[in-house]
Amino acid sequence: MKKLFFPLLFATFALSAVAHYADWNAIAQFVVAAVAIVFAAGFLGKSTESVAHYAGQRLGGFLNATFGNAAELIIAIFLVKEGLFEMVKASLTGSIIGNLLLVLGASALAGGLKYKEQKFNLHLAGQNGTLMLLGVIALFIPAVFVKSEHLANQNSLALSVIIAGVLIVAYAGWLVYSMITHKQLLEDHEETSPDHGETAAWSKGRSIVYLVLATVMVAFISEWLVGTLEVFTRAFGLSELFVGAFIVAIVGNAAEHSAAVMLALKNKMGAAIEIAVGSSLQIALFVAPVLVFVSLLFTPHMDILFTTVELAAIAVAVFIATSVSRDGATTWYEGTLLLLVYIILGVAFYFV
């Protein structure tokens, strides 16, 4: 199977490109792209694991989250340009809850079935929880003030821009704190000697090239796949909120799903946490604020006001994810609980 992986990877990618540009039937495009993204996500996961072998689990996890969110950011910028702000906010909401509940839950479940308990850095868990709460507060405050009519509508954009700037500063500070000044404090024990007798799949240079290549492939396939979703939305009578928060988010996060689960199965839960939670933090503290600033280049502008349903979903996801991870260890049952909460939210969004 390993010998066939690359031929199948490039064959499915090429077939997906042909289906898209030749304007095949939308359902056929969806099926081909869905198969292609499975291989592309696996390629990205393997590349990330190889890079992490040389750079350490934390940096490897950060790179995976960043490269995984790059595709989402690019797609979101085009949606902002078209003025589809509700779809953008729904997809951001879906990304946050998808990473905290689906990705983290699947990783904890898969790893927990193989290992009785998987431990990771307790201090990192606490810092992640605090940052997630900051994201909830930053999204909650403007929505409350506007809806309670204590803030004029014309001032909501100004407030959104200021809050977006504050969140970017907070994220930049977190990168300095976690990658430079307190790097050793946040490392898992196994990170101090990353080799563990293992060998990387590829050389350092090839690993980096493959990581970039895999990200580009995921970006293209994700865009092609998302482009077919309108047909399914009409066919099954799905709401824009459900499509944005769940279908688009699941497709956009395919790379993180694959990489995090693969690492958890190798008892590298710290790296899986870095991917799942780190990706959610990056969406809330960097991607969403950046989109607010990007929208200033177009008309109309996007604010940072999320709906009550979206805020409730994000708050619930942050609360349960923080509760599960605050002790610095996960089990298969805790992973199951996260997945069950994700199902509850999915059903609720479906009936909105």
Rank of each mutant, 00 (worst) to 15 (best):
K2A: 10
K3I: 13
F6G: 11
F6W: 12
L8S: 10
F13H: 03
F13W: 00
A19L: 09
N25M: 07
F30N: 14
F30K: 03
V31L: 09
V35P: 00
A41W: 04
A41F: 02
A41R: 04
G42D: 06
G45Y: 01
G45N: 05
K46L: 09
V51T: 06
Y54M: 15
L59G: 06
L59M: 14
G61L: 13
F62N: 15
T66W: 14
T66S: 15
T66Q: 10
N69G: 06
L73Y: 14
L73G: 13
I74P: 06
V80H: 01
L84W: 09
F85R: 13
V88Y: 04
G94P: 08
S95P: 08
I97L: 15
G98D: 01
L100I: 05
L102Y: 04
L102G: 01
L102R: 01
A110I: 05
A110H: 02
G112H: 00
Q118H: 01
Q118K: 05
N121W: 08
L124I: 03
G129K: 09
T130S: 14
M132A: 10
M132N: 07
G135N: 01
I137G: 08
F145I: 06
K147F: 02
S148E: 13
S148Y: 00
E149N: 11
H150L: 10
L151S: 10
Q154S: 14
Q154C: 12
L159Q: 09
L159P: 04
S160D: 06
V161S: 13
V161G: 07
L167V: 05
A170C: 08
A172C: 07
L175Y: 06
V176K: 11
Y177K: 02
Y177P: 00
Y177M: 11
M179P: 06
I180K: 15
H182F: 04
K183L: 03
D188P: 00
T192W: 09
S193H: 13
T199D: 10
S207E: 09
I208E: 11
Y210Q: 14
Y210H: 11
V216H: 02
A219K: 11
L225A: 08
L225W: 02
V226Q: 03
V231K: 12
T233K: 15
T233H: 03
G237N: 11
F242L: 15
F246E: 01
A249R: 07
G252T: 15
G252V: 12
A254W: 03
A255Y: 03
V261K: 00
V261T: 08
K266W: 02
K268W: 10
M269K: 05
M269T: 05
G270P: 00
I273M: 13
I283S: 13
A284I: 02
L285Q: 07
V287W: 03
P289D: 13
S295D: 10
S295P: 04
L297V: 11
T299N: 08
P300M: 01
H301R: 08
M302E: 01
T307W: 14
A315C: 07
A315L: 11
V316R: 04
V318T: 04
R326Y: 06
D327Q: 11
D327A: 13
G328E: 07
W332K: 02
W332V: 03
G335L: 04
T336K: 12
T336Q: 07
L340Y: 07
V341T: 10
V341A: 14
V341K: 04
Y342P: 12
L345S: 07
G346F: 02
G346N: 01
V347G: 12
A348V: 13
